[in-house]
């Protein structure tokens, strides 16, 4: 307990110093377009329900962004996990798909923007669902396929790579032991490979969610976008509202950190055996 207080203070010291420096520089500069003052940004963050530059509230834009990321990320996980399990377990599938998939891996999701736009244009979930008008249309039209594709690409590779790695590094003795005990291939898959690889899969999901979330701003810069934190930032930039830009950036950082912390908590709770296993 004696250690806890200095530790807590040490964690706050650097951010506090950073804020003081920010405020000092903002006052010296005296130009809110170059660097707004602490209070101006804080005002926006502390009133997340207030309308900003007639684009809706910060909270609403963050929520729209979150839903977008969730859709693209869910698609990435749904495809990458089964594919990774298959590629990790069956050498043949890995030889078939591995080299091909690694060709695309180094391409940053942002580089896909022109192609993705050419393919999906301004099509949205509304066009996919065949909804033409009404409140459902307004809602669904917020989620453009091109944005979801960019977010998907961001999340896909980290999840795939970790899943393959997780399955590959399962100790051979565990599989041998299960076979000797009478496990059939399906039993080995469900009761040995999947649980043994789970910590690595979840770690990949955490990293993938982080990358998906980082792809958000580039995705929301795409044409047809009228909401979301990414759009809020670019729109605020054109209006020289640096305070809104910074509030948007901080929101992205906070939400990303919360998502990451959630995953870390899950890893700590569920996969303690991985740390303790020798």
């Amino acid at each position: 307990m004696k250690q806890a207080i200095p530790g807590f203070l040490a964690r706050l010291a650097v951010p506090a110093l950073f804020l003081v420096l920010w405020e000092y520089l903002a006052r010296r500069t005296g130009n809110p377009i170059i660097l707004p003052r602490l209070g101006e940004v804080a005002d926006i963050l502390l009133a997340p329900g207030a309308d900003l530059i007639s684009m809706g509230s910060l909270a609403r834009n963050v929520a729209v962004s979150l839903v977008r990321v969730c859709i693209g990320y869910a698609a990435a996980v749904a495809l990458a996990v089964p594919l990774g399990l298959a590629m990790g377990h069956y050498g043949g599938i890995n030889r078939l798909l591995g080299p091909f998939l690694s060709l695309f891996r180094p391409i940053p999701p942002l580089a896909w923007v022109p192609l993705v736009l050419a393919w999906f244009g301004v099509a949205s979930l509304a066009s996919l669902a065949g909804v033409q008008r009404g409140p459902a249309y307004i809602y669904l039209n917020n989620f453009k396929l091109s944005m979801i594709a960019i977010i998907f690409l961001g999340g896909f590779y980290p999840v795939l790579a970790s899943t393959i790695h997780g399955v590959r590094t399962v100790r051979g003795t565990l599989v041998d032991a299960a076979r000797v005990l009478g496990a059939r291939p399906w039993g080995i898959f469900w009761k040995i490979l999947l649980p043994a690889a789970a910590p690595s899969v979840v770690n990949g999901m955490r990293i993938g969610l982080g990358v998906s979330w980082m792809c958000l701003v580039s995705a929301e810069m795409l044409p047809g976008s009228l909401s979301g934190v990414g759009y809020l930032i670019t729109h605020a930039y054109t209006m020289a509202r640096t305070d809104v830009v910074m509030a948007g950036m901080i929101s992205i950082g906070l939400v990303g950190a919360v998502l990451d912390a959630g995953f870390r908590l899950l890893e700590k709770r569920k996969f303690a055996w991985k740390r303790l296993d020798r």
């Binding site: 100790r171 000797v180 996969f271 055996w273 303790l276």
Partner: peptide, 29 residues
Amino acid sequence: RPEVGMVFQEYSLLPWRTVLENVALGPEF
């Protein structure tokens, strides 16, 4: 075959299962 058991030198228990669930693995399969 389950009628022929084997014990390995290396640690072969499933680290995410309790001791009891490990022992129950054969009947489970």
